[in-house]
C-alpha cells in the first residue's frame, strides 16, 4: 500500500575489501625494493660485537668471511671450537686462500683489485683465529679488511 518500501532491517553492509590486494601489493613492493636476498646460510654463531667508529661497507667489492662457534644445531657434529665459514661451508684455515681467490673472481673485474674482506666474527671467538685469517690475507695481498660491528658501544652497557 505504501509507496515507499520499508527499509530492510538494520543490516550492516559488508565491508568492501576490494582495495585490500592493492594495500598488500604496496607492502610487497616495498619489501622487494628495500631488501636483498640472503646470500649465505650461516653455519656459525654470529653475535657481532658493538662499535660506533664505523664506516659503511661497500657491498659490490667485498667478500665475506664468517667465523665463530658452530651454530647449536651443528655443535654435535663439529664441536664448539671456533670455525671459519666462507660461502656456504666450513673452511679450514689452509683452504682459506683458494676459497677467497674464487670469491674474488666472482666480483666485477674492475673492482677485483679493490677487494675488501669483511670479517663477520662472533664476539666469543679467540683473537688468535682472527689473526690467522689476517695472516692468510696478507699472503694473498688482500690488505683491505673491515671488521663488521653492530651499532652501539661496549662501554655504555
Amino acid at each position: 500500500m505504501s509507496k515507499f518500501k520499508k527499509k530492510k532491517g538494520g543490516e550492516i553492509p559488508a565491508v568492501n575489501t576490494a582495495s585490500l590486494p592493492d594495500i598488500v601489493f604496496m607492502l610487497l613492493f616495498f619489501f622487494m625494493v628495500v631488501t636483498v636476498l640472503r646470500e649465505d646460510n650461516l653455519l656459525v654463531q654470529q653475535k657481532i660485537p658493538k662499535g660506533d667508529q664505523v664506516e659503511k661497507l661497500k657491498k659490490d667489492r667485498s667478500v665475506f668471511v664468517y667465523a665463530g662457534k658452530p651454530s647449536p644445531r651443528y655443535q654435535d657434529k663439529y664441536g664448539k671450537e671456533g670455525k671459519i665459514q666462507i660461502g656456504d661451508k666450513y673452511t679450514d684455515i689452509t683452504q682459506l686462500s683458494p676459497a677467497l681467490t674464487e670469491l674474488r673472481s666472482k666480483l666485477r673485474p674492475e673492482l677485483q683489485s679493490k677487494v675488501m674482506v669483511a670479517l663477520k666474527v662472533d664476539e666469543d671467538t679467540n683473537t688468535g683465529l682472527v689473526t690467522d685469517i689476517k695472516q692468510e690475507l696478507r699472503e694473498l695481498q688482500m690488505y683491505k679488511i673491515i671488521y663488521i660491528t653492530s651499532p652501539g658501544n661496549q662501554i655504555e652497557n
Partner: peptide
C-alpha cells in the same frame, strides 16, 4: 619476501693490513 630477505645494514671498522 619477508622471510628470505635481510635489510642491508653492514657497517664496521675498516683497517689496512701491512
Amino acid at each position: 619476501f619477508l622471510v628470505t630477505t635481510t635489510i642491508e645494514k653492514d657497517k664496521g671498522i675498516a683497517r689496512q693490513l701491512p
